[in-house]
Each structure stands twice: as C-alpha cells, then as structure tokens.
C-alpha cells in the first residue's frame, strides 16, 4: 500500500509539499482526512517542493523532527516528520485522538434513532472521512511546526 499526502495552496505563498510514505494499514486508517500542509516559503525550501523518496541521495542523514502537540476539544494531535537531508520521507502522528478506542465515535445531537446507526458504524473499519474535522486543522498546525523546526 502506498499513501501520499500533498498540500495544495493553503496560503498565498503556496508551496506544495509532496510526501510519499509507506503507511501501516491499521494505524493510518483514520489519518486519511487529516492531511498535512505547509506554509514554508519556496525561497528558503525549494528542495521540499518535490520529495523524491526513491531518488534522494543515500549519503544524506536521516533525522526526525516532531511538531508541537496541538490540543483541541477532542484530544491532542502531534506530527513527526522524518527527513533525509531536506526531503521529507515520512509523516507520522505519534498522537492522534482517533487512536483512542472507537467509543470516541458517539453521536450526541442527531435524532436519537440515529444512535443505533452510529453504534453500528463503529464496528466498521473507516478508510477515510468525508467532511472536515477539527483533527485536520490541528494536524496542519503541528505539521507546520515540525517543518519550521526542520528548516532551522
């Protein structure tokens, strides 16, 4: 399985970060909707506009930088980058609120007869999420922090 994440023009600067990485099926299943982006500037980080994992020079050292933990209503999100030189080779989320048991999926306000449906939904393996989530914004913030750190 191969998963890739890209940021498409979040800001006026609009650097595109393309990340390709191997994902482990179980842990990454809820990470499909939250995806990273970057506000790093193209002037200072031209190398990161493409992340050719396979062609990165093998001589460069590999390092990991961790973004700040971003706390929001439902938990804490923290993103870690693995870089080979200035090329991002992996993105991981050591902390994701969705890592909690699936009991986190609780319907509180939709009409009561929907609760059964939601309870049944909990047993399904979720591949991705339609509709924006708080988590994605926190993920972006933490990722941005990690990228800023990687530049220094």
């Amino acid at each position: 399985m191969k998963r890739a994440v890209a940021a498409v023009g979040l800001t006026i600067v609009g650097l595109y970060l393309v990340v390709t990485f191997r994902s482990t099926p179980v842990k990454s299943q809820v990470m499909s909707a939250p995806t990273p982006t970057t506000r790093a500037s193209t002037e200072t980080q031209p190398e990161t506009t493409n992340a050719p994992v396979a062609t990165a020079p093998p001589a460069e050292t590999t390092r990991t930088v961790t973004g700040p933990p971003i706390t929001m209503q439902y938990g804490t999100v923290q993103v870690a980058l693995t870089l080979r030189g200035q090329t991002i080779t992996n993105v991981a989320a050591p902390q994701m609120p969705f890592d909690r048991p699936r009991s986190a999926y609780i319907s509180q306000t939709v009409a009561p007869w929907l609760k059964d449906e939601v309870l049944k939904a909990q047993s399904a393996q979720i591949d991705t999420i339609s509709g924006a989530t708080y988590t994605s914004e926190a993920y972006i913030q933490s990722l941005q922090g990690a990228i800023d750190q990687a530049k220094t």
Binding site: Y74, I106, S107, I126, Y134
Partner: peptide
C-alpha cells in the same frame, strides 16, 4: 463527519 462533533461520525 458528525456536524456537531467533528470527532464523531
């Protein structure tokens, strides 16, 4: 995603 609770479905 749940419209009232973005951590829920």
């Amino acid at each position: 995603v749940h419209p009232h609770d973005r951590s829920a479905l």
